[in-house]
Design a protein around this nucleic acid. Structure first.
Length: 298
DNA sequence: CGACTTTGACCTGCGC
DNA sequence: GCGCAGGTCAAAGTCG
């Protein structure tokens, strides 16, 4: 769908000097694309990135989405992928089975939320613990796509992290599924202030995003460090030399969980969530999740 | 010792 | 029906 109307006032073209979130409506419930525009004078067009990279994904239209940081999505129902890999590890078959029972439906129908974040870090900390279970090179992008799963055995949330082929500085994170645990598992046993999540939620609410209360925008955590930098002005390199997951963890450990809140007020780096529904579909990841109306397919 | 990352192989789905 | 691409699993290796 092209709900261009879904675009929030502040989008990529937000007012200079003022960051803004842009939510591109989601055609599918559960799917949404968020874009956070920073005051960066840069030509950095989130949408551009998203679409650019998506362009190549014309493949099977599989579900593709962009990366994001937010956690979970609010899926309407936990039925989607009950198996998350099938309940069993059966074998690859299971995996595939999980994908899509139906051709028309393609693979998974779970709600997906894609976020685009300008970061040098591939795997942004979102407050949850993720385990990487695979990495694949995609044709459409020179950068490999990483697959993460929530370490919580009961949580079936999956995350795909990929760098925008157009803007290597942009990380596209796609969340699939919803966390079944309120507590955010911090890297080292810490917990995030869910309260702060409320703030995020509100944001989601505004966007009409189906985000559950337990969810919040993860970008916060990793953003802490970045945030400051981001303000610097550069649209793209807000981060430090490059924080690795481990580094992030260390930072988190050292830092209290307050960051979460800040996110709401101040976004970390540039986070773009692409969640809208692109009527055109076909945009690879994004296509499945969201469609960005104003964006051009390139 | 435990947890996580990395790499390769396998399977499914879709397009041609 | 075949081939291509994406997605997932499993095993091994590495690091804290």
């Amino acid at each position: 769908m092209d709900d261009e109307a879904a675009n929030f006032g502040s989008g990529p073209d937000n007012v200079p000097g003022e960051p803004g979130w842009t939510f591109v409506g989601g055609g599918n419930e559960g799917s949404g694309l968020f874009s956070y525009g920073f005051p960066a004078p840069s030509p950095f067009d989130l949408a551009d990135l998203a679409w650019d990279r998506s362009q190549p994904f014309a493949r099977s239209g599989s579900s593709s989405s962009e990366e994001t940081e937010p956690p979970p999505e609010p899926p309407p129902e936990p039925q989607e992928k009950p198996s998350e890999r099938s309940s069993a590890t059966a074998s690859s078959a299971s995996a595939a089975a999980n994908k899509g029972p139906k051709k028309g439906q393609k693979r998974s129908r779970q709600p997906r939320v894609a976020f685009m974040t300008k970061s040098e870090i591939d795997h942004l900390e979102d407050g949850y613990r993720w385990r990487k279970y695979g990495q694949k090179a995609v044709k459409s992008s020179p950068f490999p796509r990483s697959y993460y799963r929530c370490t919580n055995s009961k949580c079936t949330v999956k995350k795909r992290v990929e760098r925008s082929s157009d803007d290597p500085a942009t990380v596209i994170t796609t969340y699939e599924g919803q966390h079944c645990h309120h507590t955010v598992s911090f890297p080292r046993g810490g917990s995030v202030n869910i309260g702060s999540a409320a703030a995020h939620i509100s944001l989601a609410d505004q966007f009409k995003m189906p985000m559950p209360p337990q969810l919040y925008f993860p970008s916060l955590h990793f953003s802490l460090p970045n945030r400051a930098i981001v303000s610097s002005g550069s649209h793209l390199l807000p981060l430090r030399p490059a924080l690795t997951n481990q580094q992030l963890r260390q930072q988190q450990q050292q830092m209290p969980a307050e960051p979460s809140l800040e996110l709401t007020s101040s976004p970390p780096t540039t986070t773009t969530a692409a969640a809208a529904a692109n009527g055109s579909g076909g945009e690879g990841l994004l296509g499945d999740i969201v469609g960005v109306p104003g964006m051009r397919n390139r």
